[in-house]
Amino acid sequence: MALRGGGAAMAKLKTVHANLKFTKGTVTFRGFALVAARAAVRLPGDSDAIYTVRQQDVQIALEVIIAGGHVYLHLPFSGYNELTGADAADIPDLAKLFDARTGLPAVIPAGRNPKNLGAEKVGEVDSNKVEATYDASLIHSMLAQLNSSGDVDAVFWIGGSDHLIRKAVLSGLFGDNGTPSSVEVDLSGFNGSVTIPTPPAS
């Protein structure tokens, strides 16, 4: 019930801010270990995401702007570069996470064995804490870069009155080589102001 409400509320979102933090295991993308990501999303398809990746001991912030179907990459010290074709397709599109048909709104209600874990505050908002289990294929359909070799356990904190998901913790075998990994997602700024810059042509 709570999961269905959460999915329905998320399906109505226009804008949202997301913060992702990998808290266990290593998830590698194109040779970079993902540490964290934060994104401003304007649905249906625009986003400004900053991925913090680690290479040896150095952390690098990679900014990816997806606006009007164009994908731009911004590396430290350099300007914006438009990526095209396969290079662009390779980039995770965080707006898809909130897509009403294929993203969280559609996937959340499909959780197995939902269990209410009680009430908790997230920030200042009274939320219901709910856990459920998801098939790996469902997670993969949400974000192609997330490959799990087994079920993914999820815990959601769902706003008591607006049913919006404030926080989610996903744990499963989606680390490198199917190792256990965990990611914490904080969501905020629902339907608030979001500015996605339009990068200058380079």
């Binding site: 194109r30 040779g31 970079f32 290479q55 690098i60 990679l62 990459l73 590396l75 010290f77 350099s78 300007g79 570069n81 990526l83 396969a86 290079d87 390779d90 980039i91 380079s202």
Partner: peptide
Amino acid sequence: LGTPHLTGDVRAQV
């Protein structure tokens, strides 16, 4: 360093 112009995919640019 200036403002380098980078090309290729993410890996190549990094």
